[in-house]
Write a protein that binds this DNA or RNA. Sequence first.
DNA 1: TAGATTGTTAATCGATTAACAATC
DNA 2: TAGATTGTTAATCGATTAACAATC
Lengths: 211, 211
Amino acid sequence: MSKRKNIPMPVIRRLPKYRRYLLELSESDTEKISSTELGIKMGLTPSQIRQDFNCFGDFGQQGYGYNVEVLLSTISEILGMKMKYKFIIIGIGNIGQAIAKYTRFEGIGFELKGIFDINPSLIGLKFRNIEVYDVKFIEEFVKEKNIDIACICIDKRGAQQVCDKLVSSGIKAIWNFAPIDLNVPKDVPLENVHLSESILTLGYLLNEKNK
Amino acid sequence: MSKRKNIPMPVIRRLPKYRRYLLELSESDTEKISSTELGIKMGLTPSQIRQDFNCFGDFGQQGYGYNVEVLLSTISEILGMKMKYKFIIIGIGNIGQAIAKYTRFEGIGFELKGIFDINPSLIGLKFRNIEVYDVKFIEEFVKEKNIDIACICIDKRGAQQVCDKLVSSGIKAIWNFAPIDLNVPKDVPLENVHLSESILTLGYLLNEKNK
DNA sequence: TAGATTGTTAATCGATTAACAATC
DNA sequence: TAGATTGTTAATCGATTAACAATC
């Protein structure tokens, strides 16, 4: 693993999907897989798979294919899954609670360390043994606990302000569920989950069909 | 509005974002906007904006720009927002509940009509006045009520089977939150929200930064 | 009319696919 | 060794950006 520089975003977004299929192959004790076989499973061309993998180095073997365990382990490492990341949730409404209660994130290296809300009636409640704190403590919490990721699940109104606070406290990445485009410095990765825009896409496609 | 044929997917995915910004402009009583101004706001090039809009017809005016109300109304119509869509939720766990309780979907034309689960202890509960039914009634429900969209929020294990049932009952689109690639016929639009893959992307970018 | 800004064609850029020599 | 399949270069495809004539 040595090439990696300026990996195209589409490739990065395919990595978790590769991992998912390789995990399945690993669980069914498949030892090796060729780009052609994997392509059929995943609906990708063999060419694309080889190009993707070669962004990070050559871990295939001519005439053989790819060793499933090696590939899985390599991709997991590329994804940073050998690391643990600390995250907090801001806004423990519908989505915030869903994220808080979802236990699978821990298994892939993301540990929920704190929950924050502005609503006094929620402060003090516990979700999965994590207490809800007043948002006013965010800055000190992020700094002291060295939090990596903030998951923003509040109304769009306060979102930019909270985001600014998080950034100035040294947050390393933002996972945003608020329906707004947040302004963050270039060196703070931002990942949006815009549910309304997602369902609206379906609306468009449905509407198209009925033409 | 007449050109529209084979609109590229990237354009379609930008439509909800255009709508979001136009709504804001409309709320602040802005009458007109040029592709240059809008581009600055949205972080897009003026060229791209004009290309995007011209996929659907020409609703700008040379020397003037675009009328905000006209553009907003046109894009809303293109998105199918003058229609009402009926959707159901399958699996009322963490994510299912978040979707069920989220009231904003109704305002953009998506009405929750039913909730289904396999867990007897959840059947009969109500979320926003919608009762949870046993999954075994899905097929008859989809057919009788002419449901448009199914939001799949169950464990990946049963997801494909449920999906097949939905498709054979005439579901028109699938909104999938299960961490799996569902097999659907080409004419049934599928939109995935893969939260684990989303946060793993952040993990990758964080890991990259620390290099 | 003059200035502004669109609609649209052409150029560029980037990502995907194809081809094939290298090699296990 | 022969067959298979990679790694990699070249060709293609599609999306974005630039340029400019049309026109409000």
